[in-house]
Design a protein around this nucleic acid. Structure first.
Lengths: 206, 206
DNA sequence: GTGGCAAGTTGCCACCGTAAAGATTGAACT
DNA sequence: AGTTCAATCTTTACGGTGGCAACTTGCCAC
């Protein structure tokens, strides 16, 4: 980017960008701090001055991921007025994030590779989660449902997260059953519809 | 185990065991082939003769994990007669596997660390998945439901998988909302009930 | 200017994965 | 019985990696 000045100018961002690139291309397994530094055009110890260690860099990437998620889901929600449609749009946004920012998503929930107690990470996560929770609260209030909001949110979140993680396996299972694997968008909508049925007919017992 | 003969006797199992131990203790991040070999009391290149490389060892561990899952879910199913209860029991078995064999579960769905095309892995995965699919088929037939079996199975699997992955985050969210985080068993039953409501009231549109 | 601090660099060490070649063992064959 | 042979494990070696310590460069406040 900026030519070879001694002081890079915005190394933290450059490093995050390079890290995401490496992870997206070669996977988290082959991720290496040195390779990231190489791509950013700095020495292999430069990252330490900004992120401490490799964990710090990946944690920072996770924060960025949650920020992306927050923005994507909140604009998706803003574009819809019907609460149920909002939920579906959120689901789509969730898996869209997973395909648009695969590196971030591989990191966000990996407590073995990230510092789960990092306060900025916690805050970013909570902010993203609040969008889902608010959407469900609106749905419950608009339709007068009898379901615990947190439990419903838990189901939606878990299902979407599971979908992202299991995507390759699901395609394999479909193929084995002789079914053409559907797009992620279709999967999301099918699951959302089913969950909506569940949420709408719940009797409110915890 | 067996004292220091030159030929270990059952090194592959010993290595899998040691690997699971390391991962459970120190996490996948600090996993090292050399450490595993050290614990098994052999030289650091011995594993290569049985598993090729580190990927091979972890793939083998994943296979073992799916076998555990298969056994746990099929005995859970066998212990119940009511189809809906079976589903709940399966869910509990799923998360029980995650807590009883944490190392295996950290590996099973990590295509970046495992060879996803390994035929024995594919077979073990399919066999485990068939238990879920059969359970849902029984439920659909017993109650005369109008839901696509594969879609329902997808939801159940994704939700349980998501629950396992998100467990730490969910505990944090609950704590932030001033709620005492419930046990995993409770989480499973709540989600299963909600999904059952959904499956039962689905209108059968794909 | 000059003192000081932030940003980057070089050099180092311990560790890791894996490839190649040698040592040890049990078992199969004659 | 003795020999061969393949499987199993060890030793040795090499390139790559993360993190620490000590050094250099550049900028800004005084």
């Amino acid at each position: 980017m900026t030519p070879d000045r001694y002081h890079h100018g915005d190394l933290p961002n450059a490093l995050r960008h390079a890290a995401a690139e490496v992870i997206a291309e070669d996977g988290l397994g082959r991720f290496s701090l040195r390779e990231v530094a190489r791509r950013a055009g700095v020495s292999h110890t430069a990252p330490a001055h900004h992120f401490g260690d490799v964990r710090g860099l990946l944690t920072s990437l996770a924060v960025e991921g949650f920020d992306h998620l927050y923005e994507a889901t909140s604009t998706a929600v803003a574009d819809e007025s019907d609460p149920a449609e909002r939920l579906a749009a959120m689901g789509e946004a969730y898996v869209a994030i997973a395909t648009d920012h695969p590196a971030h998503c591989q990191v966000m929930f990996r407590i073995d590779v990230v510092d789960p107690d990092d306060p900025t990470l916690l805050e970013a996560g909570m902010r993203a989660h609040a969008v889902l929770r608010d959407t469900i609260r609106d749905l419950v209030e608009a339709e007068g449902l009898h379901v615990d909001i947190d439990v419903a949110a838990e189901l939606c979140w878990a299902a979407m997260q599971g979908l992202v993680v299991l995507a390759p396996k699901l395609a394999l299972v479909d193929a084995a059953h002789g079914v053409e694997p559907p797009s992620m968008r279709v999967r999301v909508r099918r699951l959302t519809r089913l969950m909506l049925d569940g949420v709408r007919h719940a009797d409110g017992q915890t």
